[in-house]
Design a binder for these strands. Structure first.
Lengths: 338, 338
DNA sequence: CGACGATGGTGTATCGATATACCAGGACGT
DNA sequence: ACGTCCTGGTATATCGATACACCATCGTCG
């Protein structure tokens, strides 16, 4: 591997001059610059980023830490973040926390965090206390809906409102018994994880419509995923529970629900209406196309990067934490009636 | 930030002893080790990975470079690789090449590659000449189906055979006119990108069955994706083309085809059979469930990591490049007849 | 009793780039 | 003629951890 001093020697200048050329700093004469660039091209020199990072601190890299690569939801998010960052000449790497406490904590070790200029952290699977214990110097913006330490910047989506919109739509288009698939029985305050907050919105829609929210229609899923959702719908039908609407807490769950309903010979939306949450890329191509809550990812990503850049610019100085809740919007498609 | 010498001073030992403790090296007495560990815990010390990397070379991190995060296919791959790596105490980061030459080349700069112990590189979008120009010291394993420089290890899936299986199945279950959606008109040799090779398999199935492969049934897609596939099916129907089977070159394309067929009021599999390729997580949950070619990701990942580890172990020494073609398997589901 | 091998530990150079201070020489104003 | 500023450039310490060579005890064995 050629180093800067190899280049310096070959060009007959000091390493510092090479460094200045490489980084486009001004204190170099035009002629010298050209000579150095020639030598660099000839030797195929490239800067050693580890050395630069050690010395200069800067990495020009932002990390997005997600619970797992297999969730389509995060793939979508990652793609958006990457596009935004590239416009500022920076670079995204995605790591996975593993959706387990251990994995996410490992990804969160100060050691690892220090490798990046900033970190966007999806907090699924983390306890509040874990996050509180974190004493990272690296700028962090949290993505998620949990009740999180106030000292962090935090971009959340409006779970309660999204769930309310979804449920209200079904109630207003003729559904009487709307299941929440992937909800949480103990949901109360509007704080907490995704399942509880979305359950609160489901309940709020019932209150508004003057209906009682039947607790038996709250179907919990231990790991809200597609396969489990399909099974849950099968169980629901087998148990003889009466329902004519499903609010699936995520689109992934909705995909499973759609399959489960088809298994049971129930027609969508005629027998059962269905609304998801996330507006995944695949959702509009399902048959019938999935009505879903769009989480406004573009706004979330823009805001998250704004907050991150603000902290990076502050360079460790004090910054007042912000909490931002993105707008949500119901996307009407084929799994609901007009 | 606390450094190793802070710890050393506080514990009354040398930095080297702290380093030995941190890395679990033997030359440390039990009592001293405990004292150092105490101080580490107290000061909240964590090793600076940049410094370690600079000095020691090792990073314990493998990169997977994919064309884009939004392709579900790669999310699946990434999840598998991450799981495998974690079992060996290493760590995965995912970067995106951008599916454009520029992006992928940027991700490929020697500078960036040197940040990892090894790199798995999905070569979609790269020209052979770009890869040839690459003079990286970092171990690289290529994932993809292109005609690639022989000096690289290369894990491909059996595109020709997969496409042949898919097409043959439809031909043997009553389809007479099988469209290849996302194929390539000039496909010939069996080498090249995904579209050409899968087209070769499609043609091979026709040859075997003693049928003529009608070139008008090769539908090209400039960007093989879901939305474009849906449009293409609409165009196909509008043009009055007769067909009763579709081999979609990827599951993402198949999802679009399924939507397009539904739009056109065609029943699957009664009017048109459909087979995809990739066996995405979502495919079994489609309605009807998608018959597809399973690319044997588990084998691909295992082999790719084996090849990578072999190179990492060789530590820059000479290694004979291998080319591995994983097995494929047809997964029968609801979009085809028995 | 002296050599010798474990055991436990230290000092120093080094990885490759960057920050800082400093220097030579020419232009320029007064 | 002299101080001052600007331009173009260099020498050196440093970021934080690790590799290597070396050293001090101490028990023990011939």
């Amino acid at each position: 591997m050629t180093t800067m001093s190899d280049v310096a020697r070959a060009a007959g200048v000091s390493v510092m001059t090479v460094s200045n050329v490489v980084n486009g700093r001004p204190r170099v004469g035009a002629e010298t610059r050209l000579r150095v660039l020639d030598v660099i091209a000839e030797l195929g020199y490239e800067v050693n980023l580890n050395a630069r990072r050690l010395r200069a601190g800067r990495t020009d890299t932002v990390a997005l830490i997600v619970p797992g690569f297999e969730h389509m939801y995060f793939a979508d998010l990652a793609a958006r973040v990457a596009r935004s960052l590239e416009q500022t000449g920076r670079h995204l790497v995605v790591e996975r926390g593993g959706a387990s406490r251990e994995g996410e904590l490992a990804a969160l070790s100060l050691a690892r965090l220090r490798m990046y200029d900033g970190v966007l952290l999806s907090v699924v699977g983390l306890e509040r206390s874990d996050i509180d214990r974190l004493r990272a110097a690296t700028p962090i913006v949290l993505l998620g809906e949990r009740d999180l330490p106030k000292r962090y910047d935090h971009v959340a989506m409006d779970n309660v409102e999204g769930a309310r919109l979804a449920t209200a739509h079904m109630l207003s288009t003729g559904s009487r018994d709307v299941v929440i698939l992937g909800g949480s029985a103990q949901a109360a305050t509007g704080e907490g994880g995704m399942a509880p907050t979305r359950t609160v919105g489901w309940r709020a829609a019932h209150d508004e419509a003057g209906r009682a929210a039947d607790p038996r229609l709250v179907v919990e899923l231990t790991h809200p995923g597609t396969a489990e959702a399909r099974r849950a719908v099968a169980d629901l039908v087998a148990s003889g529970t009466v329902f004519d609407g499903i609010f699936a807490v995520t689109d992934a769950v909705a995909v499973g629900a759609l399959a489960g309903l088809a298994d049971a010979g129930l027609r969508v939306p005629d027998d059962v209406q269905l609304v998801g949450f996330d507006n995944l890329a695949v959702s509009e191509f399902l048959v019938p196309a999935l009505t879903t809550v769009d989480p406004g990812h573009d706004v979330m990503v823009r805001e998250a990067l704004r907050l991150l850049d603000r902290r990076i610019a502050a360079d460790g100085g004090p910054v007042i934490a912000e909490r931002i809740v993105g707008p949500v919007r119901l996307v009407h498609r084929g799994t609901t009636r007009r």
